[in-house]
């Protein structure tokens, strides 16, 4: 039997920015398709608007900054930013909302800090938080997943709704929208209902809201594929989801009437998408092995704190941005010891 032997140096294949970004996009596809299946054409239309705006904005900023336009446009980083932002937006978000969010992400959160590789904050989440605090009404008008909706909008009807804000005659916003599982859990707990009472509503599936829990699973699949391809490191998603699970379990075991199942926290809102796709952003996340564990676990903890005691139903975006701020300090104190040197603090 003949084995090919190569002489040293044995280098790992170089991974280009475009290659990594392309793999992230592939990994996002299953979850995105699931979202289109459950929430209708709006997700796809928003995605097309978001990506178009992202490419145009990126080109303008690169032109103004006198950088090679074709080179940086083809690395897909703007597409990934827009894609992640759009997934966090309600399916019938008006076109101007998407435009403002994507433009803010790329112009202020990315290029004003120096472009790809220099942004201290995750651009997609910065854009999302700007939209959430500026346009609370539009940002909380979520559609009901298909098995709960009374009517589903067709492609053209959705297109009209996105661009003009008009629904077809005879359909009211109340008929197609519904509270998200996290939102409804929050409201009902505020009305002093117990978890058992809340879960009798048809909104609930096995652990999360109907539809929502499955979207989480498809994103999980994409995330695991990214782990397998070694595009992302396991430390951040694992530590984030573990931290979220542990604190949710402790509180659930101490008082099951007022705290939902730990699995509910994992499979609702942006927890899985955040753990695998957003917190792992190679630019704004921590880069040392132990630092990544601190960073991920802190995000998980903050997500739980914001969801349970904070002012918003979900807290992934805020948690990621807060921990982005802490990254320089985390990296500084967790610098690995290089061989022959004393460790930090000795």
């Amino acid at each position: 039997m003949h084995f090919n032997t190569l002489t040293s140096p044995h280098l790992a294949p170089t991974s280009s920015v475009a290659g990594v970004m392309r793999q992230v996009i592939y990994a996002l596809v299953p979850g995105t398709v699931a979202m289109i299946w459950y929430f209708g054409w709006g997700v796809l239309i928003n995605l097309v608007i978001g990506v178009t705006v992202a490419l145009v904005t990126e080109a303008i900023m690169l032109y103004l900054r006198k950088r090679p336009i074709a080179l940086f446009l083809s690395d897909f980083s703007a597409v990934v930013t827009a894609w992640l932002l759009v997934l966090a937006l309600p399916p019938l978000a008006p076109w101007w909302l998407i435009t403002i969010g994507v433009a803010f992400s790329l112009v202020i959160a990315k290029h004003l800090y120096g472009g790809l590789g220099y942004n201290p904050f995750n651009p997609a989440m910065a854009g999302y938080v700007v939209l959430l605090i500026s346009f609370p009404v539009e940002m909380t008008t979520w559609l009901a997943p298909r098995m709960l909706a009374e009517t589903q909008l067709g492609f053209l009807e959705t297109l009209t709704a996105v661009f003009t804000g008009q629904l077809p005659a005879g359909i009211s916003w109340d008929a197609i929208t519904a509270a998200t599982p996290l939102d409804s859990m929050r409201t009902q707990l505020g009305l002093n209902q117990t978890i058992d009472e809340i879960r009798t509503s048809p909104l609930w599936g096995d652990f999360g809201g109907k539809g929502w829990e499955w979207i989480g699973n498809w994103f999980l699949l994409g995330g695991l594929w990214l782990l397998y391809k070694r595009v992302i490191n396991w430390r951040i998603p694992v530590s984030m989801l573990t931290a979220l699970f542990i604190i949710a379990s402790v509180l659930y075991l101490s008082d099951p009437d007022t705290h939902p199942l730990p699995a509910f926290h994992i499979f609702s809102g942006g927890a899985i998408l955040g753990a695998f796709f957003i917190a792992t952003d190679p630019v704004s996340a921590s880069t040392t092995p132990f630092g990544r564990i601190i960073y991920g676990a802190s995000i998980g903890l903050l997500v739980f704190i914001i969801r349970t005691w904070g002012g918003y139903p979900d807290g992934v975006a805020f948690a990621v941005l807060l921990m982005n701020m802490a990254v320089p300090a985390i990296d500084h104190f967790t610098k690995p010891r290089s061989f022959g040197h004393k460790s930090y603090g000795d």
């Binding site: 403002i100 202020i108 004003l112 700007v130 605090i133 500026s134 346009f135 609370p136």
Partner: peptide
């Protein structure tokens, strides 16, 4: 006009001054 709340909130002041 719907109002771009961010401009009135503190971040708007920092971004605007910048």
């Amino acid at each position: 006009y719907r109002g771009f709340l961010l401009a009135i909130l503190p971040p708007g002041a920092f971004i605007g001054l910048g």
